[in-house]
Design a protein around this nucleic acid. Structure first.
Length: 586
RNA sequence: GCGCCCGUAGCUCAAGCGGACAGAGCAUCGGCCUUCUAAGCCGAGGGUUGCAGGUUCGAGUCCUGCCGGGCGCGCCA
């Protein structure tokens, strides 16, 4: 529709140019917008305002000339000029009537498009360390990332969803040590648990599995385990030094192979749990990418070597530094520590280089906003490697702040005091959780009131939208109970019977859907779709209350049923994109 | 101190690329169920968009400076 109107204006401008009343101008200046206010028609064009200056005349005068030159259109009943010089278009109801038929015909395809033109986009999201179950903070990244990915797929991108598994590195060693200590406890050894260890119940569960499978095979006397360790923080020492020494002790006593068994049991158990958790949440991936595999394949070394060859690396204080300041970072970053170990950044350089090498046209990372300081250095790495950093887009998701009983609830994986995503899903349901998480812009803090979310009250807008869907289903059930049939063709032939204001409003809302999907996808703003669905549901509920659908008049009844079935279809399509179910009854 | 994000109704948030009188929900007050689900609808009140400048025909939106809040600033991940 916008395109059609832009064509009309374009033709008018060309006519004026030929007549010599207007200078030549770029073709992209014509912008057609939906009018917010019904009093301003259906669509508006501001071209007269933008061209007034260069044309050297008053906006309203120019608008009049343009309007006079507009070719006629069957879809436009009226054009007028308003305000400072807006050209307002009033559409014929028939313009919307064709839409109903189109929605019914295209069904689940309605709203999908190919603006992405098959470009390959990788979306990496969640990627939480597999050191414990996902908590509600990860849930937001999961819902947001999944919805952005689904939206992009809906508008014609080839989407590759990926979870980067941090299965190497110190945090995993801390987990392994934590599991082993709990295991020793189950064996009957008595020893203190480190301040920095993972204290959640799941660690006990993994330890129990270990004990069941291995018996006492990994058991060592408590005295040998703690012998000569630097003191923990609780004993006036440094908790980091203490845990590192404990990890080293575990390696030493268990040996590589048995240590790896403990490590892998922890990793695999938690990863399987995360995968299952996300799957139940409607979040699935094309690929789970192992950080360890980057080390094993030599990809990290190769990336570092490339940086060295590019002259971006230097040694200082025994460590290797990457001169990220060459690319605008605030300070240089260590890639290889003085003890010879790579930093996390080293794998990340290799990982991002690998992403681009895999041929994605665009790469999107969804990160927690607390990682924002990391963006410049990753972009610097890509630039130093000769890649275009513009291909990487980092979307930062602000924290979801939990409130319980009106007070902030603290979250910490280590202390074990946190609300898991699974708990949340079980308490408020997947639908409410998915919808709630994406209702706000990602850069906006999310106040997640657990009590409210758990209360199952109608405050939660997801019910409002789902209810609209269920209501249409209910009407159709009533129809069947009355022994009546819905004749879609008859309805299509009599769409001109739909001339009530409520009906026009609803049709206008339906016509907006493809635009909303496209904008939400391109801008990575799922909340626009959530917002839209609420408005659409409101349009339906209003219509429902104002008019009877199951009337005796066949023609009118079928036309109205066509409209509400089309509405149901759009509600269904939109909810599905958000990962929310569209129930037939509630 | 430096960097990123945020500041809109009592509360939680919207406002497509800068567009016309800034919109919803919750809460408050008042109406609507013998008729398709009242998990709904209709109406009312509620605003100097943190402050001060600037750019523009036009600014919640862009620029500058303040004020307030969150986050980050490790040879952690």
């Amino acid at each position: 529709m916008k395109h059609h109107l832009a064509q009309l204006v374009s033709t008018a401008l060309a006519t004026l140019q030929e007549a010599g009343t207007l200078d030549a101008l770029g073709a992209d200046v014509i912008k057609i917008d939906r009018s917010r206010d019904r009093a301003h028609g259906d669509f508006a064009c501001n071209v007269a305002l933008t061209l007034a200056k260069s044309a050297g005349r008053k906006p309203r005068q120019l608008a009049e000339q343009i309007v006079a030159a507009l070719p006629p259109s069957a879809l436009v009943v009226k054009v007028d000029i308003a305000g400072p010089g807006f050209i307002n278009f009033y559409l014929a109801p028939s313009a919307y009537h064709q839409l109903i038929g189109a929605i019914l015909q295209t069904g689940q395809q309605y709203g999908r498009s190919d603006v992405g033109q098959g470009q390959a986009v990788q979306v990496e999201f969640v990627s939480a360390n597999p050191t414990g179950p996902l908590h509600v903070g990860h849930g937001r990244g999961a819902a947001y990332g999944a919805t952005v990915a689904d939206l992009l797929a809906a508008v014609g991108y080839r989407v590759h969803r990926e979870y980067y598994v941090n299965d190497a590195g110190r945090q995993m060693d801390i987990l392994a040590a934590s599991v082993w200590l709990r295991y020793l406890d189950l064996c009957g050894e008595t020893l203190p648990f480190p301040r920095n260890g993972y204290k959640g119940d799941y660690v006990w569960d993994i330890a129990a599995t270990l004990h069941r499978e291995q018996g006492d095979a990994l058991r060592f006397e408590a005295e040998r385990v703690v012998a000569d360790l630097p003191p923990d923080e609780t004993a006036g020492g440094d908790k980091e030094q203490h845990i590192d020494a404990l990890i080293a002790r575990a390696r030493e006593l268990l040996g590589d192979e048995r240590y790896r068994q403990v490590f892998d049991l922890g990793l695999n158990t938690i990863l399987a749990d995360i995968r299952q958790d996300l799957h139940e949440f409607g979040v699935d991936y094309e690929q789970w990418y192992s950080e360890r595999s980057l080390n094993e394949s030599g990809a990290v070394e190769r990336a570092i070597e490339r940086l060295k060859q590019a002259g971006r690396m230097y040694q200082r204080d025994g460590a290797w530094w990457f001169r990220t300041t060459d690319f605008g970072d605030e300070k240089d970053r260590v890639v290889i520590r003085d003890n010879g170990q790579q930093t996390y950044f080293a794998s990340d350089i290799a990982y991002h280089a690998d992403k681009l090498e895999r041929g994605f046209d665009r790469v999107i990372d969804v990160w927690g906003a607390d990682h924002h300081g990391y963006v410049p250095r990753v972009k610097a790495a890509l630039q130093a490697l000769g890649e275009d950093p513009g291909r990487l887009e980092v979307l930062l998701v602000q924290f979801a702040i939990l409130y319980r009983g009106g007070e902030k609830a603290q979250m910490s994986t280590r202390s074990g005091e946190f609300v898991t995503l699974r708990e949340l899903r079980h308490e408020v349901g997947n639908d409410a959780a998915r919808f709630f998480y994406v209702m706000r812009k990602c850069e906006q803090h999310l106040d997640f009131d657990l009590d409210l979310a758990k209360s199952q009250s109608s405050d939660n807008p997801v019910y409002y939208v789902q209810y609209a869907h269920a209501r249409v289903c209910s009407v159709m059930k009533q129809l069947a109970e009355k022994g009546l049939q819905h004749d879609q063709d008859r309805g299509n032939r009599h769409l001109d019977r739909l001339h009530e204001q409520h009906e026009l409003d609803l049709m206008i809302a339906l016509s907006r859907y493809p635009e909303v999907v496209e904008t939400a996808a391109v801008a990575h703003e799922p909340h626009q779709l959530a917002q839209y669905l609420r408005e659409l549901a409101n349009g339906f509920h209003t219509y429902y209350n104002a008019h009877q659908f199951l009337v005796d008049d066949h023609d009118l009844r079928d036309a109205r049923l066509n409209l509400i079935v089309a509405t149901r279809q759009v509600l269904h399509n939109g909810l599905t994109l958000l990962g929310v179910s569209a129930p037939e009854s509630m």
